[in-house]
Design a protein around this nucleic acid. Sequence first.
RNA 1: GCCGAGGUAGCUCAGUUGGUGGAGCAAUAGUUUUGUAAACUAAAGGUCAAGGGUUCGAAUCCCUUCCUCGGCUCCA
Length: 605
Amino acid sequence: MSILKDQILRAALRMTKNMENKNSIETIRHSLSHLLAAAVKELYPDVKLAIGPAIDTGFYYDFDFGDKKIGDAELKEIEKKMEHLRKQNLQFTILNLPIDEAIKKAEAENQPYKKELIEDLKKSPASAEASAGEGQKTVSYYTVGKFTDLCRGPHIENTNQIPKGSWKLNKLAGAYWRGDEKNKMLTRIYGLAFASKEELENYVKMQAEAAKRDHKKLGRELDMYSFHEEAPGFVFWHEKGMIFWNELEKLGKQIRKKHGFIEIKTPQLAKKTLWETSGHWDHYHEDMFVFDVDQETYCLKPMDCPFNIKIYQTRMRSYRELPIRYTEIGRVFRNEKSGQLNGLFRVREISQDDSHLFVSEDQVKPEIANLLEMVGEFYAALGIEPKFFLSTRPEDFMGEIATWDKAEKDLREALAEKNISYGLKEKDGAFYGPKIDVNLTDAFGRSWQVATIQLDFQLPGRFGCEYISSDGAAKTPVLIHAAIFGSFERMTGILMEHYGGNFPAWLSPVQVKILSVGEHHLDFCRGLLAKFQAAEVRAELDDSDETVGNKTRKAVNEKVPYILVVGDQEMQSGKLAVRERGSRDTREMSIDELVKIISDSRPKI
RNA sequence: GCCGAGGUAGCUCAGUUGGUGGAGCAAUAGUUUUGUAAACUAAAGGUCAAGGGUUCGAAUCCCUUCCUCGGCUCCA
C-alpha cells in the first residue's frame, strides 16, 4: 500500500516537474534556439549547424555559413522567418536514434559539427544515467516543422507556447567551435527571450538605464579621463580623475600600512634576461612590450614580482624577518590584443595596488587571512559586496601535487576562518599556484576580476630566494602575490558604474559647488571658496553670468554632492542653503557643519 | 587576434538614388545681474578617422589601414 502510494506520489512529482520544465522560460529559450536553427536552415540550406543553448537572457545558436557573410540585414531576415514559423503553431516532436545511425545521418547530411558531437557522446556518457565508462547508446532528435536537429531537449510542445513579442534576435558575434581559438570561427546569433513581451521590454529598458551608468559615457561627462587613438589602451587622466585616483590610493595605502606592509618602488623595465629567469619570457613574451636599446633587449614590466624579489635578495634574510610584506603601486604593461581593450576595464598600462609577501610555509594561512581581512575592509569602505572565488590546480601546473593540496587547504581554511562564502573555479589557478579572486559586476552585469591573492611556489625557487630558518638551514620562502583592489583603472571604472557617478563625498572630485546669484555677491562667494579650500574641501565657484537656474542644472549634471546658491540671504545670515545631491530642497547649515559632514564621509581605517 | 556593428563640429545626432556638409547643446563675443534643472543676440566652429581607387563629380560606392563598441578566445 505504502509502496504504491509512494509510486503515485513520485509519478505525480515527476509530472509536475515535467510540466514546469516544459513551460519554464529556460525551455522556451532552448526551443527558440531550435527555431532559430530551423529558420536559418530554411534560408541557407547549406549551413552547418553547431550548438544552441539557452542562456541567462535568451538563447544563441552557432552556425558555419561557409563563405556567406551574415550581417544585420540577414539577421532581420532570419528573425522574420522565425516569427513566420512561430505563428504556424508547429509541434515539437522527439525521435530517438541508435547512435551509429545518428553518426551516419550526420555524415549523409554533411553536418560535421553534429557528427563530432555524436561521436563524443558515443565515447563518454553525457548524463549520470549512462553507466560509467560507457557512452550513450542512443541520441534524441527534435523536429519542428520541416526541421530536425540533434538535441537533448526538453522542448515546449508547440511554438504557440512562445508569447508573441517576448523575444528578438539582438546580435551577431564570432565564436570558436568548442571555444577553442585553434578551431574555426563560427557565426553566433544571439537572441533575447523572456516570459512575456512586457518582460522583454522591461529588460531592454533596464539595459538603456545601465547604459547611462556606463563609465565610458560618465568618464567624458564628468571630465575624468580620456582615450586617444594615438595610444590605444592607455588612459589619459584628467584633473578630476586624478583626484579620484589619489583618494583611492590614499585609502589603499592606509589599509596596507595598518596591516604591516612596507612600501617600495621598482623600475618600469628590465633586460630580457630578468624575464628569462622569471619564466615570463617563455610563457608570455608575445604579450610583452619589447624593444632593443644598445644591442640589448629590454621589456616593459608586465608584472612587479621579479623586481620585488630583487629587493628581497639584496641581503641575507633570517626567519626572524618573515613575513616580509612589500607593497608598491606598480604600473605594468601588457600588450593586450586589440579586440580585448575595453574602456577602463581592460587597458594596456595597468596600475596595480600590488603586494608581495615572502613567508615561511607555516605563515601562509595567517597571512592569507590577513589579506582577506584587508580585502573586506577595503570593500566595506566602498560599500561594495565582493564575490570570492577559489581557483584550484590547473592541468598545466608546475610543482608537487602535495604542495598544491596543502596550499589549497590553507586557502580554504583561511576563507572559512573569515566566514567568507566563495565560488569554486576548478582548475583555474595559475600554473605556479592556487588563488583567491574577487569579482565585481559592471552596470551591464558583466563580471570583472578585481582583487586577487595568489600563492606562488615557483618564482622564489627560480630566483634562488632563501632565508635562514631557525635550525640554521637555508630555505626557500613562499611568495604571495596580492592586489586588494586589483587595478586603479578597472576599479575606477567599476566604482563609476556602481555609483552611477554619484560618488560619496570623499571620492567626489568636486564636493561643493558655489553658485553666485548676482555680481555683487562675487566677493563674498570668493571668500567662502577660500574658507572651504582652507578646510581641505574641494569646492568650486560658478561665477558665470548665467541664471541661477542654469547654473543649478549644470551643477546637478556634474553630480556634485553639495550645491550652494549664495546671494543676499546668505550674506546676511552667514548660513548656507545646502542642496544635497538627489534632493530638490535645501537645508540650512553653517560652513563648519558642512565641512564636518564632508570630512566624516571618509571611511575610518 | 577572430566575427559583427560603427567613426560626420568639443558633445548628442541629421545628411535622400553620388552633385561644394546641417541642427541642438557646449565654447567665444556682446547684452542681461539673475534665488535652485536651459536669458537674449551675434559670429565662429569640419582634410566627413587616415590613405588609395572608381567617377566629370565621393561623407555617400570599392579596397587597405587605424580607432571605438558588442561578442569569442585570452587575462602571468
